[in-house]
Structures are given as C-alpha cells and as structure tokens.
Computed example of a mutant assay.
Amino acid sequence: MTARGAPDWLTRWEYAHRGLHGPGVPENSLAAARGAIAAGMGIECDIQRSRDDHPMVFHDWELSRLTGEGGLTAQFPADAIEALRLLGTDQRPVGLSAFLAEVAGQVPLLIEIKSMPGYDVERSCAAVAWQLDSYEGAAAAMSFDPRVPEWFAHNAPNVPRGLVGTDTLENGFQGVWRNPEALAQAEADFLAIDVRDLARPEAAAWRAGGRPLLTWTVRSPETRALGLAHADALIAEGGGLA
C-alpha cells in the first residue's frame, strides 16, 4: 500500500456528479461542466473509450440512453460519437481533450475510467494519462477496477489515483474495495465509496489511517448528512442539496 499523501485539493471541494446536470443540461456535457464551475463545485466525469482509442466523456457502455442511437460506445470512432446529440438538447458527447479545455483548471476533476472484468482498461488509462500529461489543472483518475489506480501508480505516478467502491451496485466489482489484496494492488491515494456502504467498518478504518475518503452519490438531505459525518468530500447531484 502506498504511503504517499493525497493532494490537499482533493478534500477541499464538493464535486458535481457527472457535472451539474438537470433538465436541458445532460450529464457529462460541456454545459454540465460550465454549471459546476459557476456553482463553485469540482467535477466528477466518466470515461469510455472509442473504437480509435480516444477517451470520451461518456458514462454508458451503450449509446442508447443518452443519445437514442443503437450500438456500443466502443464500436464507434470518436468523430462519430462527437457528431451525436445528447437527447433533447443541443449538447454533444465530447472527448476528454475538449472537456479539459473547457474546465481549464478552474475547478478540480475526478475522472472515473469505466471498466469491467476482462476489459482491456490499460488502453483507457494510457489515453487519459497522455491527455493529462499536458494539463495544468488539478485532476485525479479513479475506477472501480483496481487495475486503474495500479496502472497510474506504475506509469503516471504524478496523477492522483483512487479506487471507487460499492457493495450495493452490481457492476462486476462489488466488494472489491474491501479486499486487502485488491487494496494493495491498487496502491490508491484515496477511496470513493458508495454512500449506501459508507458506514462499513472498512471505510472508517481507511479514514482513521489518515487517508482521504470520498463518497457518492449524495442526492438527499439524508445522504448529505451521512456523507458529512463519515467522509472527507462529497460527490453530489442537484447542486449539492445544500
């Protein structure tokens, strides 16, 4: 397990989950990024990889929910994905390069790299790291897959790295964050834990060791109170519900 300290900025912000989105402002869009910046919030965003290995700021493995188009995100090149419309808006999916240019260091970023068991996630890590190499703002990479922070530990150690955890969401990595071998493999600087699982003793033990504990997704006064009591930073929807 790495003993290095996480950057101070990590716990000084509240983060807008997939940007500050809502009616007319789709998740992971440039408009959602602008909304978070205007609200003084950091931004959590998601990465899927296009067929030609571009990191796209897009949550789903499939295009349909967000664009109305059929097919897997990974089946299309970046320019074809960027040509789509996000449903009901004038916004389009964008690549990480455009997203970084929009944020331009105004607020910090938590970049969640999507993965699943058996997925060649190292290609996604390399694509993200290449773009972050010239980015001057605060940004961290994280994933449910412990191979992601492990990759950054060995190949881009200057990028803060986190392990995302859940015992509730069925995504192929349930409970992995509590496995001591997985934690050692990940060499994570921080954990970001499902708020529904935040009261687990492993989360408290991590935080008691002086390591940052973030929580997602805060969507109600009740989950806000839980997060404020047990975590160091919140990843929230709805403007933080303050």
Rank of each mutant, 00 (worst) to 15 (best):
A208E: 15
L213Y: 12
R196S: 07
A188N: 05
H154Q: 07
R207W: 09
G175Q: 11
T168H: 12
N158R: 15
P180F: 11
R211E: 02
E181I: 05
E170R: 15
R178S: 08
P212N: 12
P212S: 15
R207V: 06
W177D: 00
G165A: 06
L213K: 13
L191D: 01
F190Q: 00
F190P: 00
A204K: 14
A182D: 07
D189T: 04
R207T: 02
L213R: 14
A184S: 04
A192W: 09
N158F: 07
N155E: 11
P180S: 11
A199L: 15
R200Y: 04
T166H: 14
E170W: 08
P201S: 15
D167K: 07
L163T: 00
P157T: 01
A184P: 00
G165T: 00
G172S: 13
A199Q: 15
A199V: 01
G172P: 07
H154A: 06
R161F: 05
L191K: 04
A188W: 02
P160D: 04
E202W: 12
G162T: 05
R207K: 11
V159E: 09
H154P: 04
G209K: 13
P160R: 07
P201E: 14
L191I: 01
V195R: 13
W177H: 04
G165C: 08
V195K: 10
D197H: 05
R200E: 12
A184H: 06
W177V: 00
D189Q: 13
G162E: 03
L213I: 08
N155P: 03
Q185R: 14
A184C: 03
G172V: 05
A192L: 10
P160K: 03
G165H: 05
V176N: 01
L169A: 10
T166S: 15
E202I: 00
A199R: 15
L163H: 01
R200Q: 13
A156R: 14
N179K: 05
E170M: 08
P212E: 10
G210W: 15
A204L: 11
A188S: 10
L214N: 06
G172W: 12
D194P: 08
Q185G: 02
R207F: 12
G209Q: 12
G172Q: 13
V176E: 03
E181Y: 03
N171F: 09
L214Y: 08
R200M: 08
G210H: 05
E202K: 15
Q174M: 11
E170L: 11
E181P: 00
A184F: 05
N171V: 02
N158A: 15
N158Y: 06
A205Y: 07
R211Y: 06
A192F: 02
G210D: 13
T166R: 03
F190H: 06
A192D: 07
R178C: 09
G210M: 15
A203T: 02
G172A: 08
R178K: 15
G165R: 00
N155A: 08
A203Y: 03
F173W: 14
R211N: 11
